[in-house]
Amino acid sequence: MREKAQLSDRFRDFDANLTTRPWIVLGMGLRKFNRLLTLKTWNGLGIWLMIAVVYLLTFIRFILFIEPEDYPCVDLNDEYQRCVPLDFYGDLLGNAGGTKLFLIAIAATASGGIIGNDMANKSIHLYLSRPISRLDYLIARFIPVFILLLLVTALPNYMILSSMWSGNGLETSWLLDRKWLIVNIMLQGILYSGTYSIIGLTFSTLIKKEGIASSTFFLFVYGTSLVCETFFTILNAFDIDEADYILLLSINHVVDMLSYLIFDTKYYVIAFFTPREVDIGSVELIAVFTVIFAGCAGFMYWIIQQMEANK
C-alpha cells in the first residue's frame, strides 16, 4: 500500500521537463534516420547494400582510376569539360560514375513509407497532436532521408577529394586553392539529396502503400527523364531551337543542369550519339526548381491538412 502511494505521488508530481520545438524535430529526424538503417528489416538491408555499391563504385571508378592532375576537371575538347564531381552523379554509361541509379533507388526505398506509413496507420494524428506544427512534422520526416542521401552524395565526393589531395602530397596550399570545390561539393550534395528527398516524401504522402510509393517514385524520376530525352532527340533532329526546354520537365535533368551551373560547366545531353549543349538560363532553371520544391512541400502540407479535417 505504502509502495503504491509512493508510486502515485511520483506519478502525480512528475515533471516532464519538455524541450523546445527545434530539438523535438531534430530528435524525430535522427531517430527515424536510425530506424532507416536498421538491419532488422529488408528495407534497411537493401539500403545498406546500395550504400555499399555506391562506395564500391566511388572507389573503383574514381579513387583508383582518376589521376590527381585530372581532378576536378579536365578539358575534353575546345567546348566540353569533364568534371569528376559531375560525373559522379552520372548514370552507368560512358565515363559516368553510376551513382545516380543507386541514389534514386536509395531515395525511393528510404522515403517510400516515411509519411505514407504514418498516414496508413493514422499515427500521424498523434504526431500532429504534439507540440509541433505540420511543417515541423514534414521537416522531421525530411531530415532522415536527406541525411541518408548526403551519405551517398557529398560524403563519397569528399572521399574522392581527400584521395586527390593525398595524391598531391597532402599540401595545405592545394586544398586552400580549392576552397570553392569544397563548397561546391556540399552545395551539389544538398541539391541532389534535398530534391530526391522531397520528391520521395511527396510520393509517400500521395501513395500510402510503401512499396507502390517507392516504385512509382523510381519510375517517375527515370521515366520522365527517358521520355524527355527521347523528345529532346526528336526535336533536335528537326532543328527546333526550343528543344532544350523539354528537359525542364524532367527532374533528373533539372538537378543535373543546376549541378553543372554550380560548377560553371556547359551541360550537354547525348542526341544521335553526339553531345548537344543545353542552353537554359540560370534564372529559368532556378525558377523551375523553386516551383518543384515549393510545389512538393505545399502539396504535402495540403494533403496532411485535408486529412486532419476529414479524418
Binding site: A16, N17, L18, T19, I24, R31, R130
Partner: peptide, 9 residues
C-alpha cells in the same frame, strides 16, 4: 517515441 515527440528526454 511519443514521449520524446512531446519533448521529453
Amino acid at each position: 517515441e511519443m514521449g520524446m515527440v512531446s519533448g521529453m528526454s
